[in-house]
Design a protein around this nucleic acid. Structure first.
Lengths: 96, 96
DNA sequence: TAATTAAGTTTATAATATAAACCAAATTAT
DNA sequence: ATAATTTGGTTTATATTATAAACTTAATTA
């Protein structure tokens, strides 16, 4: 069958959800991602950090009025990695 | 986006590969699965055990001549779980 | 000014994956 | 015949990963 290896960074429910959101909207606030994924802030913070360290997303710390606001954006590398991950997954799923 | 949770039993590269093989061929020998997945025997043994305990596959220990031979088959539950997993995944992948 | 909330981060723990070590029986080499 | 090797795995120990709990800092509200 020749299964392609799955990028371990993307083969994680929460990180995949984060990437999926960013694919859809190019950029999103931490709190929005938290709400959409239902993740705890701590878990989300860790996973965003991993994606950022890998260069899959870019994190900008700004302010919204006086409150801190963390904005995430997907990078070109992130886009490519996501596409490759989907391709690899297809070798397991047997779907068109 | 309403991400559906991913069955943790299937959201694992090796276990997913095992299930994928069994979806394709209904039954397969341990050594064949090992060869196709490139997994070590130990790792494969553990993961097959988990799938079996969950009732996703059925394991039969027979002999091939005088050598032991472990045959795995997918169950109806396993089939359903796999289909549900694929459906859930689609909520992340944004593909048709 | 004390308590609460917002927006995260850090750290500790629980869960998971993986390989290394091991076992039993059969086969092959000496 | 018996020692070494191979086959077909299982068990166990370790490394990795995910997750939540605890914490921090600043702003808002009571």
């Amino acid at each position: 069958m020749n299964f392609k290896p799955l990028d371990p960074l993307l083969h994680s429910e929460l990180r995949l959800a984060v990437m999926s959101l960013l694919i859809a909207s190019e950029e999103a606030e931490f709190s929005y991602i938290k709400e959409q994924t239902g993740a705890t802030a701590g878990n989300l913070s860790v996973q965003i950090d991993k994606l950022s360290t890998a260069g899959y997303i870019q994190v900008e710390k700004t302010f919204k009025g006086k409150k801190p606001c963390t904005i995430c954006r997907i990078t070109a590398d992130g886009h490519t990695a996501f596409e490759n991950y989907v391709k690899a997954l297809r070798t397991y799923l047997r779907v068109k």
